[in-house]
């Protein structure tokens, strides 16, 4: 019976702990607002959060260092600030955490600016504009998103991203299968584990350029998303510097050049005709 008492004890104690925590709220001293810009310059390195396994935005080089479009853009920023670039690989929801906890100074991570996220972090002007596309295998019976909206079909996407909301409005009845990374979701569709991968339209174009004979898209573009540099909220000076960088980067043709290099086709217009 000794063991029994122990078990009951653990249960009761957990219950007590629940009560305690539910009653009290954890108070913590407010974080002093240090300027990221001065920190970066003083440190001599800029800490950049990026997501791994998200080609061609970012993926892993054979030497274990990240490579890709987002990486090149970030390196360009570091170069202009005359500091060293240090990359931190995070997952999709980890982008927000990294900025909130000031573990990263910026994110270059295929990161869509939206109001919900802007409540906790900040964004610059966009450097790329993307949509969302449902990709299926070439031999799939699916022809339209209306058809996909059926509980017998599975849609795969990366958790913590914008695909969650888009799939909920465009195909509410289909099964949703959430993966840790975009790469996982893509590979799940490739191997037939899900029927469709809801993905970024630019990524989609580069997948199609590479493996166009294996896949096709369901008609329709289901979102308008401004991919921007993410930064911690409440730091005007840092935002000012990054925004000037983005504007010059877009205007100078550097963006068009890097985009072509990684995606294999011309950069679509960043200004949307509403």
């Amino acid at each position: 019976m000794k063991v029994m008492r122990r078990s009951v004890l653990a249960t009761v104690a957990t219950g007590l702990f629940v009560g305690l925590v539910a009653l009290s709220s954890a108070a913590e001293a407010q974080q002093p607002q240090g300027g990221v810009l001065s920190d970066v310059l003083k440190r001599g390195t800029i800490r950049i959060a990026t997501i791994g396994g998200n080609p061609p935005y970012s993926s892993l080089g054979t030497d274990g260092k990240p490579v890709g479009y987002d990486i090149d853009v970030a390196n360009m920023l570091a170069e202009q600030l005359k500091v060293k670039a240090e990359f931190i690989v995070v997952d999709v929801p980890g982008r927000i955490t990294a900025l909130q906890t000031k573990r990263a100074d910026v994110t270059f991570a295929n990161f869509t600016a939206n109001v919900e996220r802007s409540k906790v972090i900040a964004f610059t002007d966009p450097y790329v504009v993307v949509g969302s596309i449902y990709m299926v295998k070439k031999d799939s019976p699916l022809q339209s998103v209306e058809q996909l909206n059926d509980p017998k079909y599975k849609i795969g996407f990366a958790r913590g991203g914008t695909a969650e909301g888009i799939s909920a409005t465009t195909a509410p009845r289909a099964q949703k299968v959430r993966f840790d990374t975009v790469g996982d979701a893509y590979l799940a569709m490739q191997s037939g584990q899900v029927d469709s991968h809801l993905q970024d339209s630019l990524q989609n174009a580069s997948y199609m350029a590479k493996d166009g004979d294996k896949y096709r898209n369901l008609p329709g573009n289901w979102s308008y998303e401004e991919i921007s540099i993410g930064l911690p909220a409440g730091d005007f000076d840092w935002w000012r510097v990054l925004n000037i960088f983005v504007k010059n980067f877009n205007a100078s043709g550097d963006n068009a050049r890097l985009f072509k290099k990684h995606f294999g086709y011309e950069l679509p217009p960043i200004q949307q005709k509403y």
Partner: peptide, 19 residues
């Protein structure tokens, strides 16, 4: 799972990059 690049994550990244 939290993005720490140890053996499993290394493998997952290689796998996502090479397909």
């Amino acid at each position: 799972i939290i993005g720490y690049v140890e053996l499993t994550k290394s493998g997952l990244l290689v796998r996502e990059t090479t397909g």
